[in-house]
Design a protein around this nucleic acid. Structure first.
Length: 753
DNA sequence: TCTTAAAGGGTTTTT
DNA sequence: CCCTTTAAGA
């Protein structure tokens, strides 16, 4: 691992490249991170000062990993490894004045953003039901990703769109930006945007930073958006020692503004760039790689890349066909159990991936039933919990008294009888008088039409807040404790002994522990700033654990960058993968992104890979017929039909898919579709017969059944045949199974279309 | 002010 | 189906 000889020729040429632009096209499993960290070490060995090197990643996790690996190669070297956002946050601390930001600016998260938009809609007297703050927020975010300012957005809207929501966004965006600025606050996108502006409008500063960061490395370059691209380029004009690594085939974040073009045009941006291709895969067996390669070859817009491996053929990639999601989940659970008991795999060797989170439920239930331990990615983040955000709200307001969002979040938490209408009046008055909310609250008694009692409460609140300061408390932890005690928040939590409040109390404790860290490590006088920044930019705490003996359930997006010996990808069906929206858009580039998503999922597998699809699938309460994904027919796979249905799914793919119209309607009932002018679907008589037979006839494991007395359940095991068939049924609300004789009980099969 | 009912909407996710 | 949000009622 550490010896130079362990690097391949291609890896070595990337590591040894010193000056000038470098593009590393790194296929999946090609040892990319290793190359980057080795290259950093090599730069330092060759005389580059560590502080002249800047390595940028997208996630905190990646930054941490890289920093650790660099540190093990160069103990104690001060190489700047950070995410785009934290890098920008730090720049803005220092130079934010130029774009109107005080050094103590706040960083708003997505829920702050929505809250603010909701207020603005209210101000404008626009109904927040028809125009959801979330939707407007994402439009604004989209615009910002493309460096479109509020003014430009409004102009474009007048000229090009007559769409109603566009107009609302055009109205909200400038006001939103104004309030943020008045609050001395930014949202996540602003962190990048302001830095872009800074670099564009302040050439001496740009030059200074360019010179300071002589060597810039950017990981996952295919995921950069326009703002990030500008920042990277801005830092690489005079010293174009820019090394970007990435894989266009793993670009799966186009929907949030990532521009795959950035990596595709690198050689045009830097004509003297050296290009290194890491094409050898050290992860997957040959058949997995072969299938993945066959799939991705169907993308037209791509840089052709070989995928090589020295590994053995290994197990063939299997495609499994099931009756419905219930059977799919049960069989997967069973298969995982077999892999563990018979083949020596550990639970943690296995991952189940899906396109949408909604698919996890059935899987979870089946795994629980089979007693397979599992963890699921994407749970509620620590810093998203209400009590934690409340405490942070106080902290933010202490640090930045202009922070309107923080003020409104906590002004009535715990209850201070400062209700909505009082808040509204305060806001209007403060805006009119050009004061911050906190200033207005302090002088509330001067407010023309505020009830004296309400005014008193506001003034009391302002006095309470003004009594807090870091200097007084001595430390962030101390300040948090003071807040917790003096605001009555502590009393609120301690007074109740409900399970929930005990949990909340312990979350606050955890927050105190985190704060203590910053008191110790952060620069004197800047602890509060450092703490708030890291907390605002901290995503989900790494909730996924690789060593904990559990199967991992996660979305295909979340799987990027990970690897597992065994991977299941479920629901490989039209409208799901590729997703309905990409099909409806009728835009091939979106289909290609979906194809890359499957490619990413497949290349996570080291030894065994299973793709599954079903005959019908329950979605949003309805059981719908499905169509196998187009992607399945693009690869040669081993088919396994576990559905028990009497037809060949592969034959259906070949004959049926060929004549299917390019745009696929959502899978709805045939009659409705025909009414809308879609051609009728081919009939599948054999299947329909089978389905009808299932209502009285032989039961199967995984089948959903209803008992008039006991309700819904799932067939867990079957023995014998015909009417004498002996069934074991797991009823929905029970923890153990119940036995039935097929012919002698009023069971009915349900859920079959 | 707090609780409950009705309605609407519904990828993917980091920061 | 499940979640969020908002309006209505106690």
């Amino acid at each position: 691992m550490t010896a130079e000889t362990h690097l391949t020729q291609a890896q070595l040429s990337a590591v040894d490249h010193r000056d000038g632009p470098l593009l590393v096209l790194a296929g999946p499993g090609s040892g990319k991170t290793r190359v980057i960290t080795r290259r950093i070490a090599r730069l330092v060995e060759s005389g580059v000062k560590p502080h002249q090197i800047l390595a940028i990643t997208f996630t905190n996790k990646a930054a941490r990993e890289m920093a650790n690996r660099v540190d093990s190669l160069l103990p104690g070297a001060k190489v700047a490894v950070s995410t785009f956002h934290s890098f920008c946050a730090r720049l803005l601390r220092q130079y934010g004045r130029a774009v109107g930001l005080g050094q103590n600016y706040s960083i708003c998260d997505t829920s702050d953003q929505r809250q603010l938009i909701r207020q603005i809609l209210h101000e404008m007297d626009v109904d927040s039901v028809s125009f959801s703050p979330a939707k407007i927020g994402s439009r604004i975010s989209n615009a910002k990703n493309q460096l479109i300012t509020a003014e430009e957005f409004a102009q474009q809207t007048d000229a090009a769109y007559r769409n109603h929501i566009e107009h609302v966004v055009a109205d909200v965006y400038p006001r939103y930006q104004q309030v943020l600025l008045e609050s001395n606050a930014v949202d996540f996108d602003d962190l990048l945007l302001h830095v872009v502006q800074l670099l564009a409008e302040n050439e001496p500063l740009r030059q200074q930073l360019d010179e300071h960061y002589r060597y810039v490395l950017v990981d996952e370059y295919q995921d950069t958006n326009l703002a990030q691209y500008r920042i990277v380029l801005g830092l690489s004009q005079d010293y174009p020692n820019l090394c970007v690594t990435g894989d266009p085939d793993q670009s799966i974040y186009g929907w949030r503004g990532a521009q795959i073009e950035n990596i595709l045009r690198f050689e045009r941006d830097f004509p003297d760039a050296q290009v290194v291709r890491l094409e050898e895969n050290f992860r997957s067996t040959r058949d997995i790689l072969r299938a993945a390669d066959e799939l991705i070859t169907h993308n037209i817009r791509r840089k052709a890349k070989l995928l090589k491996t020295d590994k053995p053929d290994g197990h063939a990639v299997e495609m499994h066909f099931y009756q419905d999601e219930q059977q799919e989940a049960d069989e997967i659970a069973g298969q995982i159990r077999r892999l563990v008991t018979d083949e020596g795999y550990r639970w943690s060797d296995v991952a189940i991936c899906y396109r949408v989170n909604a698919l996890s439920r059935t899987l979870e239930r089946a795994l629980a039933r089979e007693q397979v331990p599992y963890q699921i990615s994407g749970s509620v983040a620590f810093f998203d919990r209400a009590e934690v955000k409340d405490m942070l709200g106080y902290l933010r307001l202490v640090h930045n008294p202009a922070d309107r969002l923080a003020f409104l979040r906590i002004v009535n938490v715990p209850k201070r009888e400062i209700g909505k209408s009082t808040q509204q009046r305060l806001i209007r008055w403060a805006d009119a008088e050009g004061m911050t909310l906190l200033e207005a609250a302090a002088q509330a008694e001067r407010h023309p039409d505020l009830a004296p009692r309400a005014a008193k409460r506001l003034a009391a609140f302002a006095e309470l807040m003004n009594g807090f300061s870091l200097a007084d408390a001595g430390s962030v932890e101390g300040l948090l404790r003071q807040i917790f005690d003096r605001t009555g928040y502590g009393k609120l939590l301690r007074s109740s002994s409900s399970e929930q409040d005990v949990q909340r109390l312990s979350n606050v404790e955890e927050l105190l522990t985190a704060a203590r860290q910053y008191d110790r490590t952060a620069e004197e006088g800047h602890q509060l700033e450092a703490f708030l920044e890291s907390v605002s930019l901290a995503g989900e705490v790494d909730s996924l654990d690789d060593a904990s003996g559990q199967v991992t359930l996660l979305t295909l997006h979340a799987a990027k960058g990970l690897e597992f010996p065994v991977v299941f990808i479920v629901g490989v069906e039209q409208n799901l993968l590729p997703h309905e929206r990409s099909l409806r858009a009728g835009d091939n580039s979106q289909i290609e992104e979906e194809r890359r998503l499957l490619f990413v999922g497949m290349t996570r597998a080291k030894e065994r890979l299973y793709l599954t699809h079903t005959y019908c699938r329950e979605f949003r309460g309805r059981s719908l017929r499905t169509v196998p994904s187009d992607f399945l027919s693009e690869m040669k796979l081993q088919h396994r039909d576990s559905s028990g249905l009497d037809f060949d799914p592969t034959g259906r793919i070949n004959s049926f898919m060929a004549e299917r119209p390019l745009k696929l309607p959502p899978a709805e009932s045939g009659r409705k579709l025909q009414a809308e002018g879609w051609p009728a679907r081919p009939k599948l008589p054999a299947v329909e017969k089978e389905v009808r037979a299932a209502k009285t006839g032989p039961y199967r494991v995984g089948m959903r059944v209803r008992h008039p007395r006991y309700g819904l359940g799932t067939v867990v095991s079957v023995s014998g045949g015909g009417d004498g068939q002996c069934l074991s049924v797991m009823l929905q609300d029970a923890h153990s199974s119940t036995a039935f004789i097929a012919g002698k009980c009023p069971l009915q099969a349900v859920g079959l279309c």
